[in-house]
């Protein structure tokens, strides 16, 4: 990298700082709303609360029907954790096959993979619901987790395929000459080298599963099984009194794990590559 001139660097820094303010504004606004008394949230629009209270946090944490947010966080972590493991294993296996192997009907299968990404979820929802109901999986975490072990989020397959294609084929061939089979090439060469894609998959799976609302609310009815996202929606009621303050307070709390996860893994994104060092 050539050395940047000081003016260029300073200008860039200031611009980034202004941009950062725009990016973070909603977070500050949420934080401020969560600290205002429930009745003030919509009366006082400014960022600085004139009266600070932690009531929303206590009231929100209580949750509903005898289950606190401790339960909801635990449930979210179970679903998210297992989803990440499932996606990483199943999607990387399929991606390796599509990127590096030659097999019959490859084009057709690739097209089918895309088809499964393109069809709107609403219409496969009912058949899937009927299937999971027959298996007696409704009101368990299984409908949310098991599909991830069968690579149903084809988005990640495609992501990994694109990354594997960026890895020089010479590396595979060298390994093959050394006597490595496909399983070894996959586990010793491709998997470590596509670490950026692995990390990206982990980050996205975390965030999307954490925030995914639709399938969670269809399959989890009992508050014992509610995730954080479901509990947040539960605070609002269009026909009566909504608990906005509690909703904002718990939204802030629910961002903390995602944020920590993102920061930790994006570090990995940078450092991971430096050590493997593609030539």
């Amino acid at each position: 990298m050539q050395k940047a001139t000081p003016y260029w660097a300073a200008g860039k820094f200031v611009l980034l700082l202004i941009g950062a303010l725009i990016m973070i504004y909603p977070l500050l606004w949420m934080l401020s709303s969560s600290l205002k008394p429930d009745t003030m949230i919509f009366k006082e629009l400014g960022l600085w609360p004139s009266q600070i209270t932690l009531d929303n946090y206590f009231k929100g944490w209580e949750g509903t029907s005898g289950f606190t947010f401790a339960t909801f966080f635990k449930n979210s972590f179970i679903v998210v954790g297992l989803s990440i493991i499932g996606n990483l294993i199943s999607c990387s296996l399929a991606a390796y096959a599509f990127a590096r192997l030659d097999f019959s009907f490859k084009k057709l299968l690739f097209a089918l993979m895309f088809g499964s990404i393109m069809l709107p979820h609403d219409v496969v929802l009912i058949p899937q619901y009927i299937l999971f109901n027959k298996l007696e999986w409704v009101n368990t975490f299984l409908p949310l987790i098991v599909p991830k072990f069968f690579a149903t989020q084809a988005f990640f397959i495609f992501l990994m395929v694109q990354f594997i294609r960026g890895i020089p084929k010479g590396l595979d061939e060298a390994a093959r000459v050394d006597g490595c089979g496909h399983i070894q090439i996959f586990s010793r060469i491709i998997f470590p080298l596509m670490l950026p894609a692995i990390v990206t998959t982990a980050i996205f799976t975390f965030i999307w599963t954490w925030n995914d609302f639709f399938s969670q609310f269809i399959y989890l009815s009992n508050p014992k099984l509610w995730t954080v996202t479901l509990a947040l929606r539960g605070f609002l009621d269009a026909t009566g009194d909504s608990m906005w303050g509690a909703m904002f307070a718990m939204s802030i709390l629910s961002l903390i794990p995602i944020f920590i996860f993102f920061i930790a893994f994006q570090k990995l994104l940078i450092e991971g590559i430096a050590t493997t060092g593609i030539k």
């Binding site: 097999f103 069809l119 299937l131 072990f149 149903t152």
Partner: peptide, 16 residues
């Protein structure tokens, strides 16, 4: 390599 995905594709995507 493809078996997990194929099962998922057929059962959870193709049939629906």
């Amino acid at each position: 390599f493809l078996t997990p995905w194929l099962i998922g594709l057929i059962v959870l995507s193709l049939i629906p």
